[in-house]
Design a protein around this nucleic acid. Structure first.
Lengths: 212, 212, 212, 212
DNA sequence: GATGAATGAGAGTTCATTCAT
DNA sequence: GATGAATGAACTCTCATTCAT
């Protein structure tokens, strides 16, 4: 592993810099893979394309990652971790109130789907292209994220603030709605991110039938 | 193009029907392609795999379809048409009332996502693997389906039955929630199809903030 | 398998025929592989070289053999079978007398090492490059051939015709001497095959200390 | 060339000594190369494997040897020299009598094939993977070793002690038998080295038809 | 005396596709 | 209505090797 940790924060590429982020092969590769996997999907992407966009030779890629699959796994891992941590943090900052917690979770999710739109699509669409070993390793994290939503909604129902008769379906509906943003949202659109978060917060609250 | 027409003859198999072919070569190919595209995605599928599962030779496949891309396009076309027609029919059978119309559209969509689960996932996930020519040809149909939802909701708002402040987001949320069913639903689960449709109808009505 | 059987008798290529035996890809591939594996060894041989010498495309090779390893295994299998059968036949034609039987076995072995010199070297040198699965499958045949020698010598000792105190070492020495022929023998040399067989027969009889 | 001389410093490890290095980098590399070349053959071995087993970086290897081929050549050279010198020394210690001289040569050869079994196999099997330049350089030494046998046997025949009608074939048979030991001998077997040498001495004397 | 990062060539293998039958 | 044999391009991956440090 080891390598996987090195990723995470995308390189802070200055304006006017070359198309490819400098500062070491690994970052360039990670960035290139992210873009091309998102554009064409895992199987539609050739490792040559990635190397080319990274401005490196084909073999340099293999210096950092032992296989194409490992490259995907590292990418998905980073994304999944990052999303989960943001959720966790947001919930800690939110208070006890279920509505506030739901607002926090929707907001962080919408922000992620917009701000890390490309990554979101990778984690969603390429999940099935992970080999079982990698998928299993990450499945726990995924389940944990799901559980955050589930616990929150259950709490709201218990307290009599939410009135949805089928919490699981409510949860799935909210999450699906938020996730879908990454598919239709065009960066540079005319709708601001806070505004978008607010709209989906309202939708989520309606889905759980929130009454104060 | 001649071949494209052949798709129309695809078996209108009822929900729960076996995915295995019974007719001639074309049906076998279509069925096999459907399964394997769904399992592994377009680029993850080799035309040899399809032929093998269809129990035919590789060349037989080329008798029916001039290319792998054409096979995908035929599949997606059939699915998109089928879904749109069911929507259209359902709306004609529903009355004028926006809530009734929304119920009808949700119901038909949920039923489709469950009954033609595999096909739904293909149409959703493999859309991006259509070559521009094919994508353009089908884009109109897709837009029409979207328009059905949009018109219906706009009408509900105009009549004062729906109170959602952002009809586009409501629409996207509803559609995303329904579509997601195809991803998590396990055939043979403990929840009946009518029940599922009813739940999502309620969710949709809450999303548009329906008040009678 | 299936394919493996098709090999065996080298194509009867007429004088003036093209360098590569015609009459189907499999024969051409087999012949080419035989030559190049013998020249450069398994790992020193590229599958492209084989295809080139066979006058076929690289992929044609994969139509007949699923892998390079399979090609080697098929080759070694044919050779091992062929040699064993010749030994078996020769022993059936020889009488009961151990010396006669030893003569027969030496003769057939010398003839094989000379007549199928290339093949002999492949079976000997590339044995270790067989994957365990293939090696195990053929190991029985190899042991059977060894056993032919062992039984014969044991019989000679029992009858008091051979007087070697260490039959296993005698056997190994004889076999090693015969096998080595394939390494130094130059086709078109000045020593006839029957003469060579006769010489090695005498050597073998001396090794087992034959006294009439 | 400078590097080539470094070989001379290879550890003169006694029989049964561990194959694992203790000294500096060069010894580690030499030991690792010896093992892996023997296991998988020259072309089957990657220079990375060698470095890894030596516990060194890939580049360290290039500090000591300018190429993979040079590494092989150094190995084969050391082995060939060592064997020849032992033969030469043994013959000097033996007297004038051809039978004694044959005994000495067989003994030293058997001891070498057993005590430096791995090296013996490398020198035998990887000879063909030497580039012409290296092969030519070592060919003389090989011929000299052959000549030791040839002279000895010719002398025995001349003196009327050996009665083999075809001295060349006798020589080849003896050498082949001795060399083969390296292939079947299992270290730690139940037969002692002196005993083995004695057996092969007897076989050799029978092959040349020694009569006192 | 040794390393980490990189490279270009080539490895075995699979791909979608074709064509004569 | 279908097949067996073949192809060329592309695939993922490994190779021996280099070079700045």
């Amino acid at each position: 592993m080891g390598h996987a940790d090195a990723m995470g924060t995308a390189p802070a590429e200055g304006a006017g810099a070359p198309a490819v982020p400098r500062g070491g092969g690994l970052d360039a590769i990670t960035a290139a893979a992210r873009e091309i996997f998102a554009e064409r999907g895992y199987h539609g992407t050739s490792i040559r394309d990635i190397a080319k966009r990274a401005g490196l030779s084909l073999s340099a890629l293999y210096y950092w990652h032992p296989s194409k699959q490992h490259l995907l796994a590292a990418l998905v891992e980073e994304i999944t971790h990052d999303y989960f941590q943001r959720c966790d943090r947001a919930l800690h900052e939110a208070g006890e109130d279920p509505a506030d917690r739901l607002r926090a979770l929707v907001r962080v999710t919408v922000e992620y789907r917009v701000g890390r739109r490309i990554e979101s699509n990778i984690a969603t669409l390429e999940w099935r292209n992970l080999e079982p070993e990698n998928r299993d390793r990450l499945a726990g994290l995924r389940r944990s994220a799901t559980q955050l939503w589930a616990d929150l909604i259950a709490d709201g129902v218990r307290r009599g603030e939410f009135h949805c008769p089928h919490p699981d379906d409510a949860r799935r509906a909210i999450v699906a709605a938020c996730n879908a943003i990454a598919q239709w949202y065009e960066p540079g659109g005319d709708i601001s991110l806070p505004e978008l978060a607010e709209r989906y917060t309202q939708i989520a609250l309606r889905i759980v039938d929130h009454r104060e």
